[in-house]
C-alpha cells in the first residue's frame, strides 16, 4: 500500500485514496498524424524495471491529477509534481541520478 504526497493539496495519501493513471508525459497525436505516431501514443507504454514516471489522481481527496517518479522495483518515490508539466522537473531528475548513477532520462 503505497503512500504518495499530492502536490496539489500537500497531503500524503495512501494508495486507497488515489487512482493510478498510467504513464506520464505522453504526447497526444490527433487527426492527420501518422499511423505509427498514433499507435505509439495510444498503445505503446514504457514498462521499466526501475524508474517510472506515472500519473496519479487524488481521487478521494482534492480530485486533482499529479505525476510521480517511482521505482517499480523498490517502490522508492523520488518525488511528485504537478500534472501540468511536459517533462520531469530537473530537481527530480537530479535526485534520481544521484541515487541511480546508471539511470538516464531517455
Amino acid at each position: 500500500m503505497l503512500i504518495l504526497t499530492c502536490p496539489n493539496c500537500g497531503l500524503t495519501a495512501e494508495e486507497s485514496e488515489l487512482a493510478p493513471g498510467g504513464e506520464a508525459h505522453l504526447k497526444r497525436f490527433g487527426p492527420g498524424s501518422e499511423d505509427a505516431d498514433f499507435e505509439g501514443y495510444l498503445f505503446q507504454r514504457a514498462n521499466p524495471k526501475g524508474v517510472h514516471f506515472e500519473r496519479w489522481r487524488h481521487a478521494y481527496g482534492c480530485g486533482k491529477w499529479f505525476l510521480a517518479a517511482r521505482c517499480t522495483v523498490t517502490l522508492e518515490v523520488f518525488g511528485t509534481y504537478p500534472a501540468q508539466t511536459t517533462e520531469p522537473p530537473t530537481e527530480i531528475v537530479n535526485k534520481i541520478k544521484a541515487k541511480r548513477p546508471d539511470w538516464s532520462l531517455s
Binding site: 495519501a13 486507497s16 485514496e17 478521494y60
Partner: peptide
C-alpha cells in the same frame, strides 16, 4: 480532510 469512509468519498 477529504478522504473516504469505507467505500464512499
Amino acid at each position: 480532510r477529504r478522504t473516504r469512509i469505507a467505500q464512499v468519498a
